[in-house]
Amino acid sequence: MPLDRQVLPLLAGLLVLAGCATKPTERVVLLPSPEGVVGEVSVTQIDGEHKAVRLKDAYATAAASKRDVVAQVSTRDEVSARYGRLLNGLPVRPRVVTLYFIEGKDELTMESGKTLEEIKALLASQPVADITIVGHTDTIGSQKSNDELSLKRAVSIRTQLVQAGADANRIAAAGRGERELLVPTADEVVEPRNRRVEVTIR
């Protein structure tokens, strides 16, 4: 009994010391995407035994030091409290918007006209957006005239975005004619869904 009384505090002291030595200095937390998709991250020690922790579930966490790496679980609330600002600092996710045109013209359909206005509003809050505009046509007309029309469509959208304040040095426009049909058709077929430009904003 007296021996225990002496040894226990000593043991406790040693445990505390050991705890200090392996106090994690690094954390990795796996997050779900906005759509709820969760990927996978493996966290492997560089030194020592190359111990590895595999993160597969949302908010799974690896706590690591030079000596050890252990699996933990964080909660959504902990993540937003600790990393909310960091996550808000992520650049806007790249996206593609498709605009449709009236047959044979570089004039937008009424609905796509509204979408263009939405793009303009969005760009106002994204000062260094890089934009690629690729124009397409349906299969009515010759390949040459469709190359010209697709480019004209892309350039027309580019002009309108620049007029709305987008940086001209950051917008590229190109025409692909009838080479990249959204809806595959035979030649000389009217297809409104092929008369489009794809605007990629990053």
Binding site: L30, G39, V43, T44, I46, D47, A64
Partner: peptide, 10 residues
């Protein structure tokens, strides 16, 4: 201290 391997994720 570590190396991270990444499979399509955040």
């Amino acid at each position: 201290a570590t190396i991270l391997g990444v499979r399509g994720t955040e």
